[in-house]
Simulated assay, not measured.
Amino acid sequence: MVDFFLLLWAVMPPILLLGYYYCRVPNAPPLLRLLLFFIIGAISGFCALSLEWIFETVFNWLVDWQHQGCFVTRRCTFGLVGVALRQLVEIGPIEEGCKLIGVVVPTCYLQRRYRLLPATIFLFTIAVALGFTAQENWIYLFHGTASILDRSIGTPVHAMFSAPWGYALGIYISSRIRLHRHKKLVLWAWLNAVICHALVNVLSSAWRYSPPLRYLSYGLFPLLLWMFWRLEQLLQKVQGKPPITLISGYTPQHRYWQRGLVMFALILGGNAIFGLFILARQLSPLRLSQLFDTEIMWFMLRKISLNLIFGILAWIIYRYLRHSARRRYF
C-alpha cells in the first residue's frame, strides 16, 4: 500500500501538469496519444538510468577515479567542479538524448500518417519530459532520497530543460521544406538543454558546500524562473501567437536598463519562491498542532511576509515593463 501511494505521488503531479498544457493548446492531439508519449518518457527515464549506470561502471573500471583521482585532482572530482563535469559529460547528454529519442522516433512514425503541427510536437516533448519526471520521482521517493515536497516542486523542470529542442524539433519536422538551418537549430537547442540541465543540477548541489560556494544556490530559483518564462514564450510562439515583450526601449541605454530590471525581477521573484520553499521544508517535519504555537506562527508570518514583499516587487517590475512595451507598440 505504501508503494502504491508513493507511485501515486510520483505520477500525479506530472499528469496534472500535462493536463494543464493540454487544455491550453487549441487543436491539441488526443489525450490518449499524449499519455502514450508520457509512458514513452517514463521508459526513456529507465533507459537513461541504465545508461548512466553503465557509463559510470565502465568509467570507474577504466580510470579507477575513486582511488587514483580523475581529470585534475581527487579533491576536484569530489568537489563542485567534479559535479559540474559529471553533469556536462554524463547526466545532461544521456538524459536529454534519451528524451530526444523518445520524441523523435514515435513522431516520425506519426508524421507518415498525419500532418503534425509545431504545437503538437511541442506537446509531445512536454509529455515525454513529464513522463521522464514521473519515473525520476518514483526512483527518488522509493529510495527515500528526496521528499514529496521536493519532487512536487521540481515537476516542471525536465519540461523546461527540453522546451528549446522541442520547439526547434516542431519547426523542423512540421516544415514543408526542411532547411539545413532548421536542423542546426535542433542541435543547438539540444546543447542548450544539456547546459541548462547541468547548470541547474550544479546549483542545486551548491548548498552542500561551505561558503562562498554555498551562495551559488541562490542562483537556482532565478534560473528556474527564467526557464519557466522561456517555456511559456516558446509555447506562445509555437501556437503562432506573439511572445510577451518586456524589452521595448528606443535606445541601447534604455534597453540595458530594462534588461537590468528583468534580471533584478528574476532575482527577487526566484529567491522569494526559494524562501517559501525553504520555509515549507523547515515546517514539514512538524505536527499540525505545533504549527499553532505562538513562536512558530510568528516565525512563519515573518518569513512569509518577507518573501511576499520580494515577490510583489518582482511583480511590480514585470507589470511596469509590460506597460512600457504596450505604450511602445500601441
Results as ranks from 00 to 15, higher is better:
L191A: 12
G170Y: 04
L16Q: 10
G270D: 01
L100G: 00
L321K: 05
I101W: 01
I316L: 11
R33Y: 06
V83I: 13
L18Y: 04
C23T: 07
F46S: 01
S50L: 15
F264A: 10
E232A: 13
R259W: 14
A280E: 10
Q68V: 11
L7Q: 02
Y172L: 15
L187H: 03
N192K: 08
N60F: 01
L231P: 00
S204T: 15
A193P: 01
W53P: 02
A119M: 05
L35I: 09
W226M: 14
A134T: 05
V128C: 03
V157N: 04
G270N: 04
R230V: 11
W257N: 11
Y172F: 13
G131T: 04
Q253F: 09
P156C: 14
N201L: 10
L306M: 11
V58N: 06
C23E: 03
A280F: 11
H158M: 07
W226K: 06
N201F: 10
N27V: 09
L8I: 09
G275P: 02
N60W: 03
L185F: 06
F330M: 13
R208T: 11
L117F: 08
A206Q: 11
I94Y: 02
Q239V: 09
L185C: 07
R86I: 01
F299T: 05
V128Y: 10
I121C: 07
S324W: 06
Q68G: 06
I177F: 03
R75T: 12
E95G: 05
L31Y: 14
P211K: 09
L301A: 14
G97Q: 07
F122I: 01
F310E: 06
A314P: 06
N307P: 07
L279Y: 09
L35M: 13
Q111T: 10
P30H: 12
I15N: 00
D293T: 07
N271K: 10
M263C: 15
I316C: 12
L100M: 11
W226R: 02
T245V: 13
A272E: 03
K241T: 09
L268W: 02
L308Q: 11
I171M: 13
V200Y: 12
V81K: 01
Q66V: 10
S50A: 15
L16W: 10
P93A: 12
Q68K: 14
G82W: 02
C23N: 02
W53V: 13
L123R: 07
V58G: 03
I296M: 09
T107V: 12
M160P: 05
V194K: 00
F59P: 06
F132N: 00
L235F: 04
L17Q: 12
P285I: 00
L36I: 02
V83G: 07
G249P: 03
W190C: 03
I304M: 12
N307A: 08
L224K: 02
